[in-house]
């Protein structure tokens, strides 16, 4: 099964005494865009942080690109080619656009089968995000929310990842930017990247995802293809209450 990039088995996580995730099992194939959907507080962000090793209290197995990463430190996980763009963006506001990109820089890497992963340079990223090209020396703190959102994705891509965890890219940005993000995701998919996306906006998820897992109260309640979800208003009503 070399086609599976990320395989999560029985993932659980706690914040202090509160259990947030209950035995999640799911996978993301190579070149696939998978959406984690669910209401606020369903556990989408926690899932991503737990995969990334950012939550101390976690249990379960996470395999990435064929290796077990469930006991690794966040930096070790990132160095294996798992990229993470957090929901709250977390741009280094004192650093310029170029400096932010430099922090994310990592050497080129290959998939388990030896194929080269897409390799990113600032020039290529500026082509992908023309807005950023206009402001290479602007400090991150003086960019708009939409520009920061793009910079977060670009910074992660500087690490030449094999798979990107994209946490709510449409949250809190204008419809026009949401549309640009959708186009970017489609571009990245064409490059051969896998993407695990967390999302509440069904219209956005429909534009970009192949498959969907629906989370509720830290458990997977439904899974299927995006087409199945689009064709089932019932399921949407039950779990997403659109």
């Amino acid at each position: 099964m070399t086609d599976i990039m990320l395989k999560v088995e029985s993932l659980s996580a706690w914040y202090g005494a509160a259990r947030i995730l209950y035995d999640l099992t799911f996978e993301v194939g190579r070149g696939e865009v998978v959406a984690l959907m669910g209401r606020n507080g369903a556990g989408k962000s926690t899932t991503m942080k737990a995969i990334m090793g950012l939550i101390a209290q976690r249990q379960g197995k996470v395999a990435f690109n064929g290796d077990d990463i469930s006991r690794l430190e966040p930096y070790q996980i990132a160095r294996r080619g798992l990229g993470f763009t957090p929901e709250d963006r977390r741009i280094f506001s004192d650093l310029t656009v170029m400096e932010n990109l430099d922090i994310g820089r990592q050497p080129p890497r290959r998939f388990a089968d030896g194929a080269a992963a897409p390799q990113w340079t600032p020039e290529r990223l500026f082509a992908l995000f023309p807005n950023l090209a206009e402001m290479p020396d602007r400090p991150g703190g003086r960019m708009s929310g939409g520009e920061q959102q793009m910079l977060t994705v670009a910074r992660t891509l500087m690490g030449n990842p094999l798979l990107v965890l994209l946490d709510e890219p449409s949250e809190g940005v204008a419809p026009l930017i949401v549309e640009q993000m959708a186009n970017t995701i489609i571009e990245l998919k064409k490059e051969g990247l896998s993407i695990l996306l967390s999302e509440q906006n069904i219209h956005f998820a429909q534009l970009v995802s192949d498959r969907v897992y629906v989370l509720e109260k830290g458990q997977i309640q439904w899974q299927g293809t995006m087409a199945q979800l689009s064709g089932s208003p019932d399921i949407q009503r039950t779990y997403l209450t659109v």
């Binding site: 419809p175 949401v178 906006n201 219209h203």
Partner: peptide, 13 residues
């Protein structure tokens, strides 16, 4: 032009 875009990412517009 500056905000909505084509409107395909939300319903109702």
């Amino acid at each position: 032009e500056v905000y909505f875009g084509t409107g395909k990412t939300f319903a109702g517009a």
